[in-house]
């Protein structure tokens, strides 16, 4: 990846660099892609098990963002360009780190499963308000063949 030694002989990059005083687009593409790579998991891709259970697509986007940020840093010529690209790289790596922390550590934090009632437990007579506008007694509902799904709420 690193080609700082041969940078002088490399073909001219197609995108403008900060060397000529023009805008180094790559320095912005990396962190913007990284923010998209993190947020899109929560907003969209976590809806679909194929993208959710192992977040491979979001990890790929974030790795791409880090790669672009490294490239931008390599192309930076001025000290200002290097500082900006450095911040961009920091943002990209941070977003990747946040997704990894969330997916591979935080989401495993659950209480001991031993606290949960076992198979064979009878459902209690507890009445809860339904979105139907009626109140449903769980013990009554359990007389049907029932799938009962608990989730953590919307937030």
């Amino acid at each position: 990846m690193s080609e700082s030694g041969s940078a002088e002989n490399a073909p001219q990059p197609p995108l403008p660099t900060s060397a000529s005083g023009t805008f180094n687009y790559l320095a912005w593409v990396g962190p913007v892609l990284a923010v998209f790579g993190l947020l899109s998991y929560f907003v969209y891709f976590s809806m679909w098990p194929v993208f959710r259970d192992f977040p491979w697509l979001n990890l790929l986007i974030l790795l791409g963002a880090v790669g672009v940020s490294v490239l931008a840093l390599g192309r930076a010529r001025s000290s200002l360009g290097r500082a900006g690209s450095g911040i961009g790289l920091f943002v990209s790596v941070s977003m990747l780190g946040l997704l990894c922390f969330y997916a591979f550590f935080l989401s495993y934090q659950l209480p001991d499963a031993g606290r949960v009632v076992d198979d064979g437990t009878r459902l209690p007579a507890i009445t809860l308000a339904s979105t139907d506008g009626e109140a449903i007694d769980i013990a009554d509902a359990a007389q049907d063949k029932l799938i009962l799904v608990f989730y953590r709420g919307h937030w």
């Binding site: 437990t121 359990a142 063949k145 009962l148």
Partner: peptide, 15 residues
């Protein structure tokens, strides 16, 4: 909050 959980129930009992 509740932990995520899914139950299948028949005749009033978790199966």
């Amino acid at each position: 909050v509740p932990r995520p959980a899914t139950f299948i129930i028949e005749n009033g009992v978790i199966v």
